[in-house]
Design a protein around this nucleic acid. Sequence first.
DNA 1: AAAGCATACAACCGCTTCTAA
DNA 2: CTTAGAAGCGGTTGTATGCTT
Length: 236
Amino acid sequence: MVQEETRKGPWTEQEDVQLVFYVKLFGDRRWDFIAKVSGLKRTGKSCRLRWVNYLHPDLKRGKMTLHEERLVLELHSKWGNRWSRIAQKLPGRTDNEIKNYWRTHMRKKAQEKKKAISPSSSSSSSFSSSSPTTEFTPVAENNERSFYDTGGRNVLANNIGKKSDFEVDMDDIWKDIELSEGNCKFSSCQTMASPIWDFCQDPSLWPMDKEEQNKMVLPMSDHFNYFTFYNQEMIG
DNA sequence: AAAGCATACAACCGCTTCTAA
DNA sequence: CTTAGAAGCGGTTGTATGCTT
């Protein structure tokens, strides 16, 4: 398909609002369609990512709680870099967020531990982003769906009953966390909903005024009747 | 106060998997 | 059954912000 010119880079607030609007109309599945129909010069892929990682109403924001940290550690030790799977166990957190978090916090932490334990083994790097072959099998236990799981392919985990090296360090890490637990004020780790969503949730904002409509890139007038109809059909 | 470095997070890319025609 | 397009995942990169020297 020839798309005139797709925008890249950071999303503007206006784009966010626009995307939320169309996702509300059409649901969070048909991303290419949404991308086209919304008038956003973004790919469906980009729209999905933005929604999943930033705009989804169930998203938590703010720091990971101790509990979440633990969970990430534990699940990563089980499943390796199956971020989406791990994210399913942390409501309100995205795979991207967990992935980032892991890279910055946990991996560093674990590497330090590793170093402390075996300073001689310079570059065994057994820990670094465990490859699929060293991962654990996810027990096929849950039918849960994470909020960001828009119903895509089922993740079939490869069932290899092997322990990752990382697990060896788990006890140490737990201890570490235990120690630091006293320092973490849970109240300060509170989360908040996506700000854009707050904005968009407010029904008073949906009937946009003229100025707002003009700001929108989308050809509102052309599609609006259809959308209104569609909206009623779909959302009820 | 400024430069350099580290960290956190958003977004993109390429590949895999799923699904519908 | 085959295949093309859509959707999802994991890895990687870019950028903004905070911290240290």
